[in-house]
Design a protein around this nucleic acid. Structure first.
Lengths: 163, 163
DNA sequence: CGAGAACGATTGAAGGTTCAAGCATTTGGT
DNA sequence: ACCAAATGCTTGAACCTTCAATCGTTCTCG
């Protein structure tokens, strides 16, 4: 697919290289993270994210929508996952006092304990897989680049994360 | 989870920011890409990658293992997907002449045609979601950063992509 | 006030991915 | 030559995600 005559603006060599490299990371990092958290703590990397986000919140609770935004997930995905986490007793759902259509999700003591147990291993993995070998400058570059892409995603109008 | 007393090396503010930003991209870019290719061409982004990799090969064929490596997938994942693509007539499996345990995967004419049709839209999306707004320097920085992470992944010993 | 639109959330089905097990073939050591 | 280990690939079950439909609640505005 390099030599196809086309009116669309094709990728030049450097762009292609960057894109392939990013896709590689995209496709490999997710599974690698999942694998570690799964093995050591019996949960998905996404499960971990949910617990971690809640733990950072005063009151350790958030409305589903708000939480979905913070963990970069569709409401549907979050709903399924929270149902599972609730079944394990790590999280609890309750109607919001302020609006009857809002459901709040609260991190339970058990959930917090599980998170505290999982955290060191996870952070270690993040360090080993992502941060190691990157200079301070590169860490900052990564932040800037990721922020730009995030911006692109939000501007795109491309339906992302549910309806 | 910021203030947990712990012996593990915690992430400082800049590292945390970079990591969260990367996770955000990880979790949002995949679905966004899938969404576009799915809508416009009825296939997964991963399906697209498989077809694209084959198309770049002389003879448009590769052994399953080789192909799995290039598209950053487990053999198992690839096997399932290739079965599906074969059912659609986009790809064909055949025993390798050189070794009886090797299966080669060949891009069919139909598959090539589908790919050619899908390519401009996909490239446009990649541009819009990833490359737009990044300077030349940033594109190169991204390549370097992604390469380092790839290296980390391979060094990690963390079981990734099947057994 | 009273539609109708928008919002927050949930659900079931369809489809994708991982995991563990398994089979056949090839390699390596003795 | 032989047996064990490693390789290449496939499969089915379990699990996760998406998609589309749905339900009740809140907003909007005529």
């Amino acid at each position: 697919m390099r030599d196809v005559t086309d009116d669309a603006p094709w990728l030049d060599a450097e762009e292609q290289e960057a894109w392939l490299a990013l896709v590689g990371v995209l496709l490999r990092l997710g599974p690698a993270l999942d694998s570690q958290v799964q093995r050591d703590s019996g949960m998905t990397h996404f499960d971990y994210q949910v617990l971690a986000m809640l733990s950072d919140e005063p009151g350790r609770r958030l409305p589903m929508s708000e939480l979905a935004g913070r963990v970069n997930a569709s409401l549907s995905r979050l709903s399924h996952v929270v149902k599972k986490l609730e079944a394990r007793g790590w999280v609890q759902r309750s109607p919001s006092p302020t609006s009857r259509r809002v459901t709040e999700c609260t991190l339970s003591e058990e959930g917090y304990a599980v998170l505290v147990e999982a955290a060191p291993g996870h952070v270690g993995t993040v360090r080993q897989l992502v941060l190691d070998g990157l200079s301070r400058d590169q860490v900052r570059q990564l932040t800037a680049i990721a922020a730009t892409i995030r911006g692109n995603l939000e501007t795109s109008g491309l339906r992302t994360l549910d309806g």
